[in-house]
């Protein structure tokens, strides 16, 4: 009798949990957006050298299963080698140095509602008076749900 009781108990518990763990059937967005510079027009590629005074189009492809929301571009110096990129190539970093007038680009942008694919295209002119050396370029993108994806690329600014 006791054994039966025990088994019955396990059975009840098990059925309770099986009942609970089955898919809840709610339509939720569980996918992150994607971001990539790994296509022909993607810019910058790993280890790209940017010349002062030149204008460049920063381009990256972003997609999402439901709806894209916003993106950002952050270009900051990496003179202290505080970080590195997530690209396949590994760049030779210059010597560690301190900054005088480093170039800084910190900007957020929104994407028109309803899109699931978009090409980021930001035109940037590198000023003449900034420090040359190692820089870090970080893109990020969010979807409407609040998922985020990022990618970052090591670049250099040269004379």
């Amino acid at each position: 009798m006791k054994i039966i009781k025990n088994y019955l108990f396990y059975f009840l518990v098990a059925s309770l949990f099986i009942a609970c763990t089955s898919d809840d059937g709610f339509d939720k967005d569980e996918e992150k957006p994607t971001i990539s510079v790994n296509y022909t027009n993607g810019f910058p590629q790993g280890c790209t050298q940017l010349t002062k005074g030149q204008t460049y189009s920063f381009r990256a492809q972003v997609t999402d299963n439901k709806e894209l929301a916003a993106y950002s571009l952050d270009i900051h110096h990496n003179f202290d080698h505080h970080t590195h990129d997530d690209q396949v190539t590994e760049c030779d970093l210059g010597a560690i140095k301190s900054s005088v007038n480093p170039y800084l680009h910190v900007e957020n942008y929104t994407i028109t509602e309803g899109l699931t694919a978009y090409e980021i295209n930001i035109s940037i002119t590198i000023p003449d008076d900034v420090d040359t050396g190692d820089y870090h370029c970080a893109y990020s993108v969010t979807d409407k749900t609040g998922w985020q994806s990022r990618t970052s690329i090591d670049i250099k600014i040269v004379e």
């Binding site: 025990n6 108990f9 396990y10 518990v13 309770l16 609970c20 929301a69 916003a70 993106y71 950002s72 571009l73 952050d74 910190v106 900007e107 957020n108 929104t110 970080a138 990020s140 969010t142 979807d143 409407k144 749900t145 609040g146 998922w147 985020q148």
Partner: peptide, 29 residues
């Protein structure tokens, strides 16, 4: 709540309030 918006290129997380339903428990033998 992780929002879709940015502040100086960082994703903004904002404290919000929502209704929550929870059910569960423990069993032991």
């Amino acid at each position: 709540n992780p929002t879709p918006t940015y502040f100086e290129t960082l994703q903004i997380y904002e404290y919000t309030q929502s209704k929550v339903f929870r059910i569960g428990g423990e069993a032991r033998a």
